[in-house]
Simulated assay, not measured.
Amino acid sequence: MITNEVIALAQELWDYHHMQHEPQKADCIFALGSHDLRVANRAAELYLQGWAPLLIFSGGLGNLTKSIWTETEADQFAAIAIEMGVPADAILVENESTNTGENILFTQELLQERGLDPQSFIVVQKPYMERRSYATFKKHWPDKQLLVTSPQISFKDYPTDDIPLERVIHVMVGDLQRIKIYPAKGFQIYQEIPDNIWKAYERLVELGFDKHLAR
């Protein structure tokens, strides 16, 4: 049940997951695929504002999208960007990856094949996955300059019919757990989690928001 307590605790997690980075000029915009098509809009918007000359969309069909779509995340994202006015020749598509680590590794391979070596990236992801994306990218590509951004939407306004509030909270809880446990597995760099954030996480788990936890 979504009570006022749950909303307050979830807002704390939402705020922590945001990196609060401001866009800066970069060599490329790197959008990570997902079920949230607003990520594509944000990436295209950044390109059209002139923040970078190259736009990469990465994502096949992941755990969630394979049950709802037949067209890959990256291909859908690219179609949205082209519709918004991004030239097709400014876009690269990597449509085989199924998780954040693969997004990065498969994109590294694609760039090598094309003879491209961008040094600075604007990574675009869902709002509550900014921090985890940053930590994963820095693990796999430590020598690159990186900032992370997401659709500019508040926690209150983020849920939709397709992305209900309850699911968002389950995923935020699971992502916080991964920020804690994944550095030891070699998947991400270490990120400090303040005590109040971890307490909010523990309380949400206690209240039953545990469907996205790594077992």
Rank of each mutant, 00 (worst) to 15 (best):
P151C: 11
I80C: 03
E45N: 13
K211I: 01
E192W: 09
F106V: 00
M172V: 12
L165Q: 13
T160A: 09
F155Q: 10
P53H: 04
S34G: 05
I181A: 08
I189P: 01
F187I: 12
L147S: 12
R203G: 03
G62Q: 06
Y128F: 13
E45K: 15
F30A: 09
I91F: 02
E113G: 00
L32H: 15
F187R: 06
D117P: 00
Q177R: 08
E73C: 00
A31C: 11
Q108T: 09
L54I: 14
Q49E: 12
R178S: 10
Y128Q: 04
H18C: 13
M129G: 06
I7F: 13
H17G: 02
F155W: 04
S120C: 02
R42V: 03
G33A: 03
L116G: 02
A88W: 07
D75M: 14
L92Q: 13
Q145Y: 07
E192L: 10
I163N: 12
F137W: 12
M19L: 15
A31L: 07
Q188S: 15
D117W: 02
A43R: 01
K138G: 08
L61H: 00
S34F: 08
M84Q: 15
H170R: 02
P118T: 05
H21E: 15
I68Y: 10
T3W: 06
L46T: 13
L116A: 02
E73S: 01
S58I: 00
Q125L: 03
V6M: 08
Y201H: 15
P118W: 02
E22D: 13
R167T: 14
F155P: 08
K138W: 04
I189Y: 05
A214R: 10
F57Q: 00
